[in-house]
Nucleic acid binder design. Sequence first.
DNA 1: CGACCATTTGATATGGATCAAGCGATGTGG
DNA 2: CCACATCGCTTGATCCATATCAAATGGTCG
Lengths: 225, 225
Amino acid sequence: MLTDVRAAVSKPMSNRATPPVASHTLEGAIDFMGAPMSFTRNAEIYGEGEPADYLYKVVSGTVRTYKVLSDGRRQIGAFYMPGDVFGLETSDEHTFSAEAIADTKVLVIKRSALVALAQRDGEVARQLWALTGLELSRVQDHILLLIKTAQERVAGFLLEMADRASNGNSVELPMSRQDIADYLGLTIETVSRTLTTLENAAAIELPSSRRIVLRNRSALSRLNA
Amino acid sequence: MLTDVRAAVSKPMSNRATPPVASHTLEGAIDFMGAPMSFTRNAEIYGEGEPADYLYKVVSGTVRTYKVLSDGRRQIGAFYMPGDVFGLETSDEHTFSAEAIADTKVLVIKRSALVALAQRDGEVARQLWALTGLELSRVQDHILLLIKTAQERVAGFLLEMADRASNGNSVELPMSRQDIADYLGLTIETVSRTLTTLENAAAIELPSSRRIVLRNRSALSRLNA
DNA sequence: CGACCATTTGATATGGATCAAGCGATGTGG
DNA sequence: CCACATCGCTTGATCCATATCAAATGGTCG
């Protein structure tokens, strides 16, 4: 039951010196056994209700998962960026749909293969569980965002993105205003206005609509309530 | 690091006819090994940030989990009723606090005991994972509630409660209006008004403030969008 | 250059919050 | 046993944050 910590460091697929070790971690197994696959901007990766036979790890690009209500409102559940795993379900159907936001490369692996591996390797089983747990806490945080004011939601979103996709304080947003709005439960107009307000308050800079520079993180954190 | 499962067996309250069978399911293990414990109305069961060493199964009563934001806003994450398991985390700290809503009896069991059991029994491991998955889908549904209108949220809440705690169409709500409001991201006034509106629309009846009779489920479902 | 799409900005509308008062049930002390 | 405080809930009046409707701007690609 000992786990080599170094094995958990999932190396890019280029070389793979230690396949046996890799198979003792989930990440390793995906990197080693996963099939590369590409999706163009806005392509569907899977649809809500389809059998959840595969899971995915983002190599490059960004993915959104979402649900559409009967009246057309769309709720985005999450954004997945390079390194993130998505599509893992405990039920046998996907509960959300998934689309590539930009051209995206993923590694695909059969869930049954991992479940079989988990049956033999407790550490893999534990990591599979941990992955669902990670997803759970992400969704719980999302709920907390949704009860806040527009400013707080946008500030929280920017900080989240900065944590995940920043070079220093500069963040390149892969998603549109509509995507952000549907993630935050706001309209595009409110998102846009809020960003302008934050810019006027010198909390951020907007060199272009998709690029955001965090000028004053503590101000954003304060807004994050 | 090894945990003796039997060490966690806290006084099987009654007799135990089938210990081996019971230990092959999570529910069985909890029922068999869990220690009974009681909490009075509003008593804290655990606090956010405390070590998540135990998990709990509701025997009678109702439990709420919640977080309080820095400015005092409270978000209720979930209500747990008899048969429900709560307090299971993959991290080692509780991410929410838990309180008894009414006088409540639970079974308590050490997480490490179950994890140890899971290590030997793949079925238990699978069920532990499934439990986290169940929680995940519950929270995802909660998100969908939070983006809806007040009427839709209340209607959705009533249908959820009816599924979980009804005798026919009559539902006895264990929680206050404030609890409902904090679950739905609304104020008590809005919850109250919305209930009145639904009553006037003949969708429900309100014999008393805690008892609700569903008169027209399809109307409620329609509101549920 | 011109068409198109994403984004911003402006004007107005509105759902739910807030502030405030009333009401009914429950409990307590005199 | 009753008067009265308390608490949870409902109802009313007003306000405000965000949605909606509409138009202008800007960036991208043929």
